[in-house]
Computed example of a mutant assay.
Amino acid sequence: MTIRIAIVGLGKIARDQHLPAIEKDARFELAAVASRSAGVDGVPHFTDLAELLASDVQFDAVALCTPPQVRHTIARQAIDAGKHVMLEKPPGATLSEVEDLKAAAAAKGVTLQTTWHSRYATAVAPAQTWLSGKTIKSVQINWKEDVRVWHPGQTWIWQAGGLGVFDPGINALSIATVVLPAFFLEKATLHVPENCQSPVEAQLTFRTVTGAPVKADFDFLQTGEQSWDIIIDTDGGELKLSHGGSRLWVDGVLAHEGPDEEYPGLYDAFARLIAAGGSDVDVSPLRHVADAFLLGERVTAPAFVE
């Protein structure tokens, strides 16, 4: 069965990742786009989901690629209309919003998927396999990128609920929550520009349930070489996930490398969930971010200028 899917919010992530993944997967057909500012040639275009729902365009599912601050209202519209929903990360502005969507989807009998795309990076599954049975001694996460390159002009990211540096940092946490044992935040420092509501830099200290320290350094002002690395020291050697999880190193030797299949992996999982009548709603990465905002010490940083 072909899944007719509509994209709501046609920004950079939708164009760079969702459209190619939909085109690549024969199980999906792009049925419509709902966006205030852009469309796709040859595809019905609407300004918002409400206008799409009021039309005669037939579709089965939506991929919500809007900023998280407005995602809950749109997701509820889709669920209430009986549509399956894929939530771009982060899945909502608050944990309570996602719990409400989970309950609504279950009551309506539709699929709801929280999409942690970095978990589908090609080296993450091999890393899980390698770590199985080993004792973790320490973890260092370095997730540093240039916001001006990856999020140009996206002012929503600096507003309350926009997450700031946690927008990329949550990708690291999404990997950590599947390759590590449970871990908990002990302290955090959030560097918030004087003209923003969300941090541009953060240092986090966690500890696993087995007592291993987990440290994370997130930076949104990294220039030059970008860093998306997780280094795990174990009793069986050192594992390093680099390039956002696409390369696996063991004791400095490249052990696994593959192509970027993150979003094709997400859409494959979405199609399987729909076929099985199930949902996948995991908020563990978002919970760690919420803990950082709850527990973190805020330090005023210089104003951010695009």
Score class of each variant (00 low, 15 high):
residue 135 T to Y: 14
residue 113 Q to K: 00
residue 93 A to N: 11
residue 122 T to C: 10
residue 98 V to M: 02
residue 125 A to L: 04
residue 147 V to A: 14
residue 91 P to Q: 01
residue 131 L to I: 07
residue 136 I to P: 07
residue 109 G to S: 08
residue 113 Q to Y: 11
residue 95 L to S: 09
residue 146 D to V: 07
residue 138 S to T: 15
residue 108 K to Y: 08
residue 102 K to S: 13
residue 103 A to S: 12
residue 140 Q to P: 15
residue 143 W to A: 08
residue 141 I to F: 05
residue 127 A to F: 04
residue 117 H to Y: 15
residue 127 A to L: 13
residue 148 R to A: 07
residue 150 W to I: 03
residue 142 N to V: 12
residue 102 K to Q: 12
residue 125 A to G: 01
residue 144 K to M: 06
residue 152 P to W: 03
residue 145 E to R: 07
residue 137 K to S: 04
residue 106 A to S: 07
residue 109 G to Q: 09
residue 91 P to H: 01
residue 142 N to Y: 11
residue 127 A to I: 05
residue 100 D to I: 12
residue 124 V to H: 00
residue 118 S to T: 09
residue 140 Q to N: 14
residue 97 E to N: 11
residue 134 K to T: 09
residue 105 A to H: 01
residue 134 K to E: 05
residue 128 Q to L: 10
residue 123 A to S: 13
residue 105 A to Y: 02
residue 110 V to A: 07
residue 113 Q to T: 03
residue 103 A to L: 05
residue 106 A to V: 11
residue 101 L to D: 01
residue 128 Q to H: 06
residue 102 K to W: 11
residue 141 I to K: 03
residue 90 P to H: 05
residue 103 A to Y: 10
residue 92 G to T: 15
residue 138 S to R: 14
residue 123 A to I: 10
residue 105 A to T: 10
residue 108 K to N: 11
residue 97 E to L: 05
residue 125 A to K: 02
residue 105 A to G: 04
residue 100 D to S: 05
residue 103 A to R: 10
residue 151 H to C: 14
residue 93 A to R: 13
residue 117 H to W: 15
residue 120 Y to V: 08
residue 146 D to T: 08
residue 136 I to H: 00
residue 147 V to R: 14
residue 115 T to L: 04
residue 147 V to S: 12
residue 100 D to G: 09
residue 91 P to Y: 02
residue 102 K to D: 10
residue 101 L to P: 04
residue 120 Y to E: 06
residue 134 K to L: 09
residue 130 W to A: 09
residue 90 P to W: 03
residue 150 W to K: 05
residue 139 V to K: 03
residue 96 S to W: 14
residue 132 S to Q: 14
residue 111 T to V: 11
residue 100 D to H: 07
residue 134 K to I: 07
residue 150 W to Y: 02
residue 107 A to F: 10
residue 114 T to K: 01
residue 134 K to A: 08
residue 90 P to L: 01
residue 133 G to M: 02
residue 104 A to W: 03
residue 141 I to C: 09
residue 105 A to D: 09
residue 101 L to C: 06
residue 113 Q to E: 04
residue 117 H to T: 15
residue 105 A to V: 09
residue 104 A to Q: 11
